[in-house]
Amino acid sequence: MNRAAAAAGTIGLVIGLVAGGVGGHLLDDGSNELTAEEKRPTTTVAIERRDLNVTESATGELASSSEQALTTIGSGTITTAAEVGATIDRGGQIARVDDVPTTILFGNQPVWRAFKSSMTDGTDVLQLEMNLRALGFDPKSMTLDDHFDSDTGAAIKAWETSLGVAEPDDVLDAGQVIFAPTALQVTAAVAAGTRLTPGAELATVRPIDGSGLKLIFTVTEEAERYQPGQQVSIVLTDESEHPATITSFERVASTGGQLGGGGQTASFTVTATPDQEAGGLTAGPVSVEIPTDSATGALAVPSRALVAVTEGGQAVRLAQGDRLVAVNVGVFSDGWVEITGDEISEGTMVVVPA
């Protein structure tokens, strides 16, 4: 909403207030006094500084932008397939192969061998031990290092027991774990019954830290209102808001008139990237709140404090002296309106309908 539109909306609002007998107006005879008929219960509020923001809503879609195949170096038959849409965190099962869980652990080094007492030292051992401790499986306070010892084996056995492995031991086969940098969301799955060989795909996944998603929505407004770098908000069904930044927009259609003629409406597809701290977002439909106007640190009053005057324009009634003073109006937001004018300052008390 631009300021001209806001002002036009204000005129309609305050005329309606007067027609309903709320507040007061300058009488035709020049008096500032309210008639007895117009007197209504009132209270006072202070003019205060506020940040006023006007937004419009759109329906958008969070889509995956960095899907990847999740592979295993194990072999066997998928007995329980990955669940599409499921979020797999550290220690979560992505699937079961030969009825043994394949589990996601965190780390950047991929699995390339089994974990057992006869293995040579390596950073993959340290990566495993850090995960076992993070999951609470550290029965003998093992030393976090690159060496597989009896404490490492005991932690593996305790973990396998918790997973329901039929015969838990101190060995972790290479196909039982997959290391990933972050939690994952499953976007596609290989069906149960599929025979796997080393290097085969178990599922298609994307990270859920916000980096694997893009926000797409369509608007029918001027392109200059949606510039790269502009902030918007993703609103979920629980009403939580997550920031995103517009990265691009593209004209997709024009309707309602000849090119360049009046009445034409242009449609634009806008793409935005969720900020990195917006973790936990998942692909699917969302609402989008788009800022359209704002005033920072504006002098503001409740919009019901506005009074239409017969000479035209708007005014507010000052509590001190019970008199009207003319004001210019700016941004409307959440029941408040920006005002400027002579004698308008922070803390000044104005009259509003009770």
Rank of each mutant, 00 (worst) to 15 (best):
M1E: 06
A6G: 14
I11M: 05
L17V: 11
G21K: 09
G23W: 04
S31F: 07
L34G: 06
E38F: 11
P41C: 11
T44N: 01
S57G: 14
Q68H: 15
A69K: 14
L70T: 08
T72I: 01
T72G: 00
G74D: 02
S75N: 12
T77Y: 00
A82T: 06
E83P: 11
V84S: 08
I88T: 08
T103P: 02
T103I: 09
G107Q: 06
G107P: 10
P110K: 09
V111K: 04
W112S: 11
A114K: 08
V125L: 08
E129L: 11
G136K: 07
S141R: 14
T143K: 12
D149R: 15
A155I: 14
A155E: 09
W159A: 03
W159D: 01
V165Y: 05
P168C: 08
D170Q: 08
D173K: 14
G175E: 03
G175V: 10
T182A: 12
Q185M: 14
V186R: 08
A188D: 12
L196A: 04
A203D: 01
G210W: 04
F217L: 00
T218V: 13
R225Y: 06
R225W: 04
Y226D: 06
Y226W: 11
Y226L: 09
P228M: 07
G229R: 11
Q230K: 15
I234Q: 10
V235A: 09
L236A: 10
H242K: 13
I246A: 01
I246F: 03
S248R: 11
F249Q: 12
R251C: 00
G256Y: 03
G257Y: 07
L259D: 12
G260T: 06
G261H: 04
G261M: 05
F268E: 01
T269P: 03
A272M: 00
P274D: 09
A278S: 15
G279Y: 06
T282I: 12
A283G: 12
I290S: 06
P291M: 00
D293Y: 05
A295Y: 00
A298Y: 06
A300T: 15
R304P: 05
R304F: 05
A305D: 01
V307C: 09
G312C: 08
G312H: 02
Q314P: 07
V316D: 04
R323F: 02
V325D: 00
V327F: 00
N328L: 01
N328K: 09
F332D: 02
F332W: 10
E338P: 07
D342V: 07
I344Q: 06
I344Y: 03
S345I: 03
E346I: 10
V352G: 07
